[in-house]
Design a protein around this nucleic acid. Sequence first.
DNA 1: GGGCACATGTAAGCTGTTACATGATTAA
DNA 2: TTAATCATGTAACAGCTTACATGTGCCC
Lengths: 198, 198
Amino acid sequence: MARTDQTQAAVLGALSVTPMSGYALRQEIRDTLGHFWSESFGQIYPALAELARHGLVERRGGERTGSSTFAITAAGTARLRELLAEPAQPAPPRNPLLLRLFFGRHLGPDACRELVQQSRARAEDQLARMAAVRRELAADASSPADRPYWLLTVSAGEHAARAQLAWADEALAALADLRSADGADRLPSASPTPEEHP
Amino acid sequence: MARTDQTQAAVLGALSVTPMSGYALRQEIRDTLGHFWSESFGQIYPALAELARHGLVERRGGERTGSSTFAITAAGTARLRELLAEPAQPAPPRNPLLLRLFFGRHLGPDACRELVQQSRARAEDQLARMAAVRRELAADASSPADRPYWLLTVSAGEHAARAQLAWADEALAALADLRSADGADRLPSASPTPEEHP
DNA sequence: GGGCACATGTAAGCTGTTACATGATTAA
DNA sequence: TTAATCATGTAACAGCTTACATGTGCCC
């Protein structure tokens, strides 16, 4: 229910694939879950300590620093199942781009176009990253049981990115219309409106 | 840059459309910006106090309780422009549904299907809400200068919701395949594998 | 010997939600 | 008069990021 549970679920989940260090855990979460999840060091290490205290993960190797790894225990796997079965409550939305566009009248069409273009570029990046992940998954033969589930999240990222691209193109066109209409209103003498869109 | 600035931007932005009370502010933000933004009382009232202290908004009417309203000042409008011009940094993603699906092996295909179906239902809800907003906007003739910008955010919501629908259908099909493959693996004697996918 | 990647942790501080306290107005 | 809605605020707490402190092992 609490957010901490989500961090624990992410940590236990990652360790259910393979044992690793806290440092590697953070990299895995950033690189593999990056398009739909994030955790910082300040979350991961306390979570690992808590999980170890309850016997849900086990520390192996160098106690201090160096090549220590954390492995999930049987109790940890059971706990993971519990955590995953809890209802997935979506977080309250906070989209700073759409906030700016909603009050875009104060920014003007050109500044808005720039924002949308940045968003479009991010979507293309994401599409490229998703394609790269697909290639990696195709090349890597480990964890065959996990693969179909991982592909679902990749597909979600692709659908979202393509939708963002399509919306951005539509928004850019609308803002272009707005700009010329605006210009015609406010600067009637600026230029003889070189080309009107039919 | 800080999150507080975002709250101030949302509050100033809403008041730039029309003056209203803090209570109404919260309702407007929930009902109108709801699909891409959220603020709670605990954010709104301190933000209003802070803005009033700096002369960016002005309290009118009953000082105590009752029919008091807050109105944006000229300085407030200028500040809003500044805030909106600041770079829109996207928040770190946190999608509890995709987290569960990624580790879906531990949940099994059926539990995953249920999650996806819930997500699909939410997307349909959102699509319906966006359609309602479109109707309201078409009927309401006030704020014509804001309308094109508002429509951009509605369109973003529609694109996102449609993408979620398309993905959900794809995911449900994939999970159905997985379920039957799984059943064939784990329960070879259950039924003579009625239909195999080629 | 210096720099870099690996590795573990803590503390401060901000953001944000929730629950609570308080009271006015209005409708049943 | 009781309940619901409108209205304003505060306090406690949870979640999360960032920066810092510390140390190892390896390669150039």
